[in-house]
Amino acid sequence: MTLRIISISLVVLLFASAGLVDNGAIAQGKEEVSVDGSSAPEFSLPDLKGEQVSSDDYKGKYVVIHIATTWCPFCNAEAPHLEQLNQDYEDKNVKVLIIDVKEPKDLVKTKLKDRFNLSFPVLLDSDGSVAASFAPEGVLPDLARDEVMLASNILIDPDGKIQFFSLLDSQNFDAKLVDLKAKLDELLASE
């Protein structure tokens, strides 16, 4: 009886291990990452003025979220285009947010908000937990969950569903947000 249980345990362990390896391999392929249509995680974070901003504040609106750090060249390249998107779409029920990860307020204000003259809120995710909450399970398992999300773009619809999700770990960096805007235009046109 004991031998049988040991055998079953070993077989289960073997399959569990194989499953982990397999999931990791699948996760590396960007084509496999699909979170579109899933519910966006809720969050509540302070902005640079110290006021709390919640995902509930954006219910009924389209929200474009960019996960950033000041030292990320992709984020810096994208910042002016996010500002442009904010201006171009602000009267179309679209809001833009940057969630800065693990950086102090003064640094973010100087090197991101002021440098790029951003007119939309920049929120401070001081422990990276909100960024991590957006990370698809199993993707890039050798990186911290918040690190996976750096320089990502997310589009959330008025019902709180993710409609566009781009991890930057692709060979086609889209600083001008061409793909995201195309999806946004498609959604706005279908209303």
């Binding site: 030292w71 990320c72 060249p73 992709f74 693990k102 990186l143 911290a144 690190e147 750096l150 320089a151 930057l168 770990d169 692709s170 060979q171 086609n172 960096f173």
Partner: peptide
């Protein structure tokens, strides 16, 4: 150091 590849930068 702060590492990057062609399409992503990582934490220092």
């Amino acid at each position: 150091y702060q590492p990057c590849d062609a399409s992503k930068c990582y934490y220092p």
